[in-house]
Amino acid sequence: MDIPVYLDADACPVKDETYRVAARYGLTVHVVANSVLNLPREPWIVRVVVGPELDAADDWIAARAGPGSIVLTADVPLAARCVRAGAAVLSFTGKPFTDASIGMALATRDLMQSLRESGAVTGGPRPFSARDRSEFLGALDRAVNRIRRG
């Protein structure tokens, strides 16, 4: 069973970890970005370069996401679209986006955006850590196994 993985690749810190898990399970990874990225030359890694339009990568991924697929993104609105389509969706820190959590994630995103637009200094996200990388690896492995079991 081929499980397609859709990687929102612009500013993704876990590309290598994604490739490692994909190689272990024989998955196809669609690396979606607005520009050409340097990728390993593997037949199971598919480079997808979309146009420069705002949300072009998101639209490409959302159009293909569904049951039996995995979407990897830090973009909460994209995550919401893919969760609604039935895909397994993970953040780059390994946090799963689910029906139960996506509403709160969207509300938090909107609040933080509103605060930034009003001039508040929000500090931004914390630095990406080795623990985040490890959590991502475990979460991706669990998502693959959950889909494989049906």
Rank of each mutant, 00 (worst) to 15 (best):
F97C: 09
S118D: 08
D132P: 04
A85Y: 06
L90Y: 09
M104P: 00
L115A: 15
L111H: 11
D99R: 10
L90N: 00
A130L: 11
M112C: 09
K95V: 13
D132V: 09
S129Y: 08
R109F: 14
G123H: 02
V121W: 12
D110S: 15
E117A: 15
A105N: 09
D99G: 12
P96R: 11
A87L: 01
P125F: 02
D132N: 10
S114P: 04
A120R: 13
S129P: 02
G124I: 06
D110P: 05
D132L: 10
G119L: 10
L111M: 15
R116E: 13
S129T: 09
S91Y: 00
L115V: 15
G103F: 15
A100V: 03
Q113E: 15
A85C: 05
D110I: 08
F92E: 01
T98S: 01
R126Y: 05
G119C: 06
T108K: 10
K95T: 14
A87T: 00
D110T: 12
R116C: 14
A107I: 13
A88V: 09
A105V: 05
P125M: 06
S129W: 00
P125R: 07
R126T: 12
L115D: 13
D132A: 09
G123Y: 14
S91F: 01
V89E: 01
S129E: 12
R126V: 01
S114K: 11
G103T: 08
F128G: 05
A88P: 06
R116L: 15
G124F: 02
P127W: 01
F97R: 00
A87G: 03
T93V: 08
L106I: 14
P96G: 03
A105W: 03
R126N: 12
A105T: 09
R126K: 12
F128V: 14
G123W: 05
T108W: 06
P96K: 06
D132I: 11
T93G: 07
G94V: 05
L90F: 09
M104V: 05
S118F: 08
T122A: 04
R109P: 01
T93M: 10
F128T: 09
P96D: 05
S129G: 06
D132W: 05
T93D: 11
S101W: 03
T122V: 13
D99C: 09
M112Q: 08
P96E: 08
F97W: 02
R131D: 10
G103V: 02
T93Y: 11
A88C: 15
K95H: 15
L111V: 04
G94S: 06
G94Q: 03
R116A: 13
M112D: 07
V121H: 13
L106N: 04
D99F: 04
L115R: 12
D99M: 07
S129C: 14
L106G: 00
T98N: 03
L111Y: 13
P125D: 09
M104R: 10
P96C: 04
L90R: 06
F92M: 03
T108Y: 07
F92K: 02
A107M: 12
L106P: 01
Q113V: 14
S91A: 15
F92C: 02
P127T: 12
I102W: 00
A87C: 04
A130D: 11
L115Q: 08
A87Q: 02
R109M: 14
G124N: 05
S114V: 04
A88N: 06
R131K: 15
R126D: 14
G94M: 01
G103H: 04
D132H: 07
A100H: 07
M112F: 07
I102R: 00
L111T: 11
G94R: 00
T122S: 07
